[in-house]
Amino acid sequence: MQVELEVNGNRYRVDAAAAEPLSALLRDRLQLTGTKVACGEGTCGSCTVLVDDRPVLSCLTLAAACDGASVRTVEAEGDLLDRLRRAFTEEDGFQCGFCTPGQLMSALALLERTPHPSPDEIVTAMSGNLCRCGAYEGIAVAVARAAEAPA
């Protein structure tokens, strides 16, 4: 079926199978391989992208359900995302980097909705993104730091 959607500001018209997850559409059809699939069943958060500003799991999101949607991935541009990238770098908020695209997307969604989150709000918002390397401290501090940084 035909799906029209916007990804990182670019419009696409894609012929997607009904069962095709958004993650496959992004990675295999649009070559946006920054979005990672680590579990494929909604448990790890690596595939988190923003659909109409909400952080969702692209492995469980049907591409067909994204007709007319605006999607943002780790490849997106933006000042807030850049601030997060700088903060993740400076606070060492990643190691292998495989979960990082999902971490960045969850953090972006949080700061867009809550520009100055409390430490508890950061923990809650980021708790659905598993990081096996254990970079959590850097992640939490980076999100707080990006929130404080001047726009």
């Binding site: 946006l32 391989t33 920054g34 979005t35 991935t73 780790v74 490849e75 990238r85 993740f88 770098t89 990643f94 980097g97 990082t100 695209p101 960045l104």
Partner: peptide, 9 residues
């Protein structure tokens, strides 16, 4: 590796 890992590239 920050640049590559944080941009999705």
């Amino acid at each position: 590796t920050a640049g590559a890992r944080l941009s999705g590239s």
